[in-house]
Design a protein around this nucleic acid. Sequence first.
DNA 1: CGCCATTATTTTACGAGTAAAACACGTGTT
DNA 2: AACACGTGTTTTACTCGTAAAATAATGGCG
Lengths: 193, 193
Amino acid sequence: MTATNGGPMPASDATGDRPGAGPGPARGDTVSAVVRQWQAVHPELDTGPMEIIGRINRCAALLQQAEDAPLRRAGLSRAEFDLLGALRRTGHELTPGELARETFSSGAAVTKRLKQLTERGLVERRGDTRDRRVAHVRLTDAGRGLVDGILPDQLAYETAVLSVLPPGDQGELAGLLAELLGRLEGRMGALRA
Amino acid sequence: MTATNGGPMPASDATGDRPGAGPGPARGDTVSAVVRQWQAVHPELDTGPMEIIGRINRCAALLQQAEDAPLRRAGLSRAEFDLLGALRRTGHELTPGELARETFSSGAAVTKRLKQLTERGLVERRGDTRDRRVAHVRLTDAGRGLVDGILPDQLAYETAVLSVLPPGDQGELAGLLAELLGRLEGRMGALRA
DNA sequence: CGCCATTATTTTACGAGTAAAACACGTGTT
DNA sequence: AACACGTGTTTTACTCGTAAAATAATGGCG
């Protein structure tokens, strides 16, 4: 968060900016209210970045909250679903290390999740025959079934949430985000090299 | 996360899609690689939502990581900075409850942060004279100075990170995000009412 | 007046994630 | 063969956040 305080940032109530006043295209989100507050206090600063970073953070928070519902119904946390999803979409076994990279989480977190998911019978592990350090994790039939059962619901739910935007805008937004993300990842990847 | 597994989602390495291959406009972000994997396994599903939600989540994660650096240098977590920022930009005292709403966090979290920030001499509290349940929190001079010192750096850093996008695209993106966020918040607000 | 519902805040118990240390194995070197 | 080194995974110790219970105080209302 913190697009220079992009994270949280409601404040609109104090701004006298009535949300949902007109029937028009949703005047004024919470981020613009926060930006106005900063402008009033520090008129000399360029608050441009907040308009993007703050909104991305806020959208992410709202969308995540919305998305949790379908998953919790299935008794899974998002992190757990991401792990199972990685196994499902790659279609083959993955080692704990690969799962960590695949889900952008630490090895320790993966270890814990695997323990739980194994106990629940959603994944199985098998040791590598050549290198006894590594393990290979795969979905059980139950695990695959669970993922395949949840996925359509999840996508339908997401579609519904995003339907607040007309399809054209959705495409545009996806394109711009792809461009931003691609370049951000490129820059990060470049730093690694 | 989990734009139906939007969160984590790298996988590109396994896809044969070389990141940073050409000098062009960063072909293929990690999300598109994940989407391709899902398409291969479940060709019948509409993976459209992932292209937006997945990217928003991933962008948020990358941007947050980047933004942490300037703050940590000042010895603040983002949550702490958001709290101080809320006090700074509103310009007046806030109660713990207001701070919780303002920073989208739980009251308990605010209580803890206030304790730490008070010990560090960045904020002060004073009890309400009329209603002894409520407290009023304000920035100390040190607190205000810290925020005002960090803010320009933070914005400059953000500007630099976002400069991977040309200004025109930045504006477009900000506009689309504002539209999405405004409507999402409207929808959420509507549910409360 | 005294009790009940309500509101503001804090405390408690706990779950989840992380970094760093600890393990457990391979591998190349001499 | 023995050792040092690198790598894959797990363990440990700790932080942070939350939900729910506890605390504290106000405001009717009979």
